[in-house]
């Protein structure tokens, strides 16, 4: 299809930018995400109250001017806690998916490029991992490793890994036999040159789309785990954990569930919108 030279690459990138600019909702999502990143960095500076500042005389108060999102079961300010929770959720999502994407990509490259026993082994392992629905796999891993955010990252990474692995492998299989790779090989190019100069760049658009989408998914899974009591340790202001505590007060303090839920929703939504936009801009099939 395309030749490997800088000019083509550059025009491909320009083409992508042109298309991406048309994705209004994706750009909107990107802006929100940037704001969220800023919140995550400066949360402790902008939060009006300390996250562990309790006040037994005003517990479970609804939203007010003093407490925008109301207070929790110890009279702590929910708005401050949710602000600071941004850092946790974003970190968990990014770390887990990055680990999953890198390991999945490496395994996918090996499986697709070298084939043979390595491929059988890796793909069988993916099959086994795929045989468990995501949340169940995560529950199993957490059960063995114990709860806590580090283990949540590992669990989420493990279950996002096989998707990347399969994705990269099929992309490798498609590119490996292409004319220009064959040509390079006949000219005596090394494996690593072929892998990193040709095959990986070809798989890259798919990886980036999957990466963006997976972050949203991971944030959701991580908070589900906290909800099931297998994630963050109290009093960490993790959104899923706040929500899980809130269910006890559902009858008389709905705000305890409403706001952390909204926070998760908005964050995941933005990652998904961004992923959609990237895919539409990168996928030639969907262009007009």
């Amino acid at each position: 299809m395309s030749k490997d030279n800088n000019k083509v690459k550059f025009s491909r990138f320009n083409d992508f930018l042109r298309k991406f600019r048309k994705q209004k909702s994706a750009i909107f999502a990107l802006v929100i995400l940037l704001i969220l990143v800023l919140i995550a960095i400066f949360c402790y500076q902008i939060a009006p109250y300390g996250i562990n500042e309790y006040d037994y005389s005003s517990v479970l108060q609804g939203p007010s001017a003093a407490h925008w999102f109301g207070t929790d079961e110890f009279g702590r300010d929910l708005f401050s806690r949710i602000l600071c929770g941004t850092r946790i959720s974003l970190t968990v999502g990014l770390c887990a998916v990055t680990v999953g994407a890198i390991s999945g990509t490496v395994l996918g490259l090996i499986a697709g490029y070298y084939g043979g026993i390595a491929e059988s082994l890796i793909m069988r392992m993916c099959d086994v991992l795929f045989a468990f629905p995501g949340i169940i796999l995560a529950i199993a891993i957490i059960a063995i490793l114990g709860s806590g955010m580090t283990n949540v990252v590992i669990a989420v990474a493990v279950f996002s890994m096989p998707t990347f692995c399969r994705l990269v492998r099929s992309s490798v299989l498609a590119t490996k036999e292409s004319v220009y790779v064959q040509a390079e090989r006949s000219l005596g190019a090394t494996d690593s040159r072929i892998l990193f100069k040709h095959i990986l760049p070809a798989a890259f658009p798919n990886i980036i789309v999957q990466y963006t989408m997976s972050i949203g998914n991971s944030i959701m899974t991580a908070s589900s785990l906290s909800f099931l009591g297998m994630g963050a340790q109290a009093p960490t202001p993790e959104w899923g954990l706040i929500l899980s505590t809130g269910r006890t007060y559902m009858v008389n303090a709905v705000h305890m569930m409403l706001f952390p839920g909204l926070a998760i929703f908005i964050t995941v939504l933005c990652f998904n919108l961004l992923g959609d936009g990237l895919r539409d801009a990168l996928d030639p099939k969907l262009s007009d």
Partner: peptide, 14 residues
């Protein structure tokens, strides 16, 4: 971990 124990533990911490 359950919500009651979690609340008590945080109380002791405070």
């Amino acid at each position: 971990s359950n919500s009651a124990n979690e609340k008590t533990a945080q109380f002791m911490q405070q």
